[in-house]
């Protein structure tokens, strides 16, 4: 197990280098350091000196990937790519274009992101499973068909519509909750609406998926045997079907957990929640390379952690699986 994890972590290194390289190429194909400096230094009275200063200070000077003029190993190390990438591996994201320290900002913003993403995630799964189980009890009836169609209907509505509609009705028309904003002291007032919207928006596809999973295991032999033994339908459901379906459900969930740290981009931006999702949106809109790079790197690391956790959870959920 331990050896396996170490090997997976080693395997992550080339992936992270690849991710970094790709970000670099994509960004610098179109943006020259000169452009970045100008965008940053503003409109009025800018001098070339100031621009050169900025580039030098930020470490964007010199060749991008290969320094033909340097000797030996410096061909690769005395480049923008090398200078900019090495600190990333130590999670030192440096300063954003506006001079703020990125790591500090990320840590500060992770809190609000999690307070939104975690409840949405947990309540969402809970509601989805409950609804799916409920529907399962009525399998084959018209109520079942009706709910399945409702699920498809729910998932055919654009996510944006739930947000726009919810915000309009609840906050603006009925004045039940604040329009947007965030405050630690009574965060629930700001989070209630986005969480409810997030849960409803995910209900259709989630409950439908779980229903399909439950149906699959309810047709299997252990369920038949249990029924044959005279166990009530509820008993079969909760004591046999649910635990056995937990395996695919859990493995599907585990990958997502680390990504919760990244926040919900659209939701945070609509409700002005100062989390990582809106941080990422800002980075895109400001074209702030330092921030984009940091977020891409962080996302990649979390994704890889998610993959490793999934593998581990397989062994946990199904003792027959061994990691080697």
């Amino acid at each position: 197990m331990f050896a396996y994890i170490v090997r997976r972590l080693l395997y992550a290194i080339p992936i992270l280098i690849g991710v970094n390289l790709l970000t670099f190429v994509l960004f610098f194909i179109v943006n020259t350091p000169d452009n970045m400096a100008r965008a940053h230094l503003g409109d009025k009275y800018v001098t070339q000196d100031a621009i050169d200063n900025w580039i030098e200070e930020k470490g964007y000077h010199g060749p991008m990937f290969i320094n033909a003029e340097a000797e030996g190993i410096e061909t690769l190390t005395d480049t923008v790519f090398f200078r900019q990438s090495i600190p990333l591996f130590a999670f030192d994201f440096g300063q954003a274009d506006n001079g703020r320290d990125i790591s500090t900002d990320i840590v500060e913003r992770m809190g609000p992101s999690l307070t939104l993403a975690l409840p949405t995630f947990i309540i969402g799964i809970w509601v989805n499973i409950c609804v799916a189980l409920m529907v399962l009890m009525f399998r084959g009836t018209s109520l079942d068909r009706f709910t399945v169609i409702s699920f498809v209907t729910l998932m055919s509505i654009s996510y944006m519509f739930y947000i726009i509609g919810g915000q309009y009705l609840i906050s603006k028309e009925w004045q039940l909750l604040p329009v947007s904003g965030f405050h630690e002291d009574d965060a629930w007032r700001f989070l209630l609406l986005p969480v409810v919207i997030g849960v409803i928006a995910g209900l259709g596809s989630g409950a439908r998926l779980y229903r399909a999973l439950f149906i699959e295991s309810s047709g299997q032999d252990f369920a038949r045997t249990a029924r044959a033994k005279g166990v009530t339908e509820t008993g079969v459901l909760f004591r046999h079907i649910l635990p056995n379906t937990m395996i695919p459900i859990l493995t599907g969930i585990v990958v997502v957990i680390p990504m919760l740290f990244m926040g919900a981009l659209v939701m945070e931006s609509f409700f002005s929640i100062p989390g990582l999702g809106s941080f990422m949106l800002d980075a895109i809109q400001e074209q702030d390379f330092s921030k984009i790079r940091a977020m891409v790197y962080l996302g990649a690391v979390l994704y890889i952690i998610g993959l490793i956790l999934t593998d581990i959870s397989y062994t946990w959920a199904d003792p027959r699986v061994r990691l080697s």
């Binding site: 992936i15 790709l22 994509l26 194909i29 943006n31 990244m262 895109i284 996302g299 890889i304």
Partner: peptide, 26 residues
């Protein structure tokens, strides 16, 4: 496997945004 793990470990939206902006400039 390396290619697709690398690609899918980049947050999708960032990749899309970066590429779209790049193409816009082109």
């Amino acid at each position: 496997q390396y290619i697709y793990t690398t690609l899918s470990s980049i947050p999708g939206l960032l990749l899309i945004a970066a590429s779209v902006l790049m193409f816009q400039v082109w």
